[in-house]
Amino acid sequence: MTDRDHLPGNPSGNPFGTSITSADIGETMEFLEDWEERYQYIIDLGKSLPSMLEADRTDDSIVRGCQSQVWLNARKDGDRFWFQADSDAFIVKGLLGVILSAYNGQTASAVLAFDIDGYLAQLDLLRHLSSARSNGLRAMIDRIRSEAASQH
C-alpha cells in the first residue's frame, strides 16, 4: 500500500488524472524534442505508477494482447471510475500513466466521450511505438472503455 491509497477521493492509489492530467502530459510531450527526452519522460511517468499488490494481479486483471505483462483493475466510486494498472516494463507503465491520466476519476460518459485518438496524435506517440506496442496500447484502452461501457 502506498500513501496515495489513503488520499481521499482517489482510490486508485496513483497520481494520474488528478495530479498528473492528460493536459500536463500533452504540454510536456509537445515541449520535448528528441526521442531520448520523450522516452525518459515516459519512463519517469512509469515510475510514478505504483506497483500493484500481488493479490490484485489476478488472472482477470491481465490485459491480453500486450507484448509485456499488463494488469488493470477498475473500481467504481460513486459514478467515477478509478484504475489501478501495472506492467513489468517501465515504458509500458509510462504508457499506462499516459492513458490513465485521461480516464482516472472520470464518469462513464466522460471515459467514452474522451477523444483518445486525438490525444495520442497530439502526443505523437504511436510513431515511436512498434505495431505490437501500439496494439497493446489499444488493448489497454479498449479494456478501460469496455469497463466504462458495461457499467454505463
Binding site: 531520448e36 516494463a89 517501465f90 515504458i91
Partner: peptide, 12 residues
C-alpha cells in the same frame, strides 16, 4: 532493468 524496456530502448 526490465528486459522489455531494454529491448525497446536498444531499438531506438
Amino acid at each position: 532493468l526490465p528486459s522489455a524496456d531494454v529491448g525497446m530502448l536498444l531499438d531506438q
